[in-house]
Amino acid sequence: MLLIRCPWCGEREETEFHYGGQAHVAYPPDPEAMTDAEWAEYLFFRDNPKGVFAERWVHSAGCRRWFNTLRDTVTSEFVEEAR
C-alpha cells in the first residue's frame, strides 16, 4: 500500500485517496468548436508511460483537495507532490 504525501495533510495511507488519472489534461475552452476526433482525444486518450508520470490524486477521506504528483510507474515512488 502506497504512502502518499498530501501537500496539505502530510503522509497518509493510499486508502484515503482516490486516483485522478493523468494530470494537465485541461477541459477544452470551446468543446463545441472541436471535431469529433479532437473531442474523443480529450475524452478517451491518456498517456501510459513506463517511468515518471504526472498524475492527479484527491485526498478524499481527508481534506478533499486535489493535487498533482509525479510518480514513477515502475517503482510507484512519488518523485514530487504539488498543491
Partner: peptide, 10 residues
Amino acid sequence: CAQTTLARSQ
C-alpha cells in the same frame, strides 16, 4: 486534529 478513517468509517 485530522480527517481520516477509523475502522471503516470516516
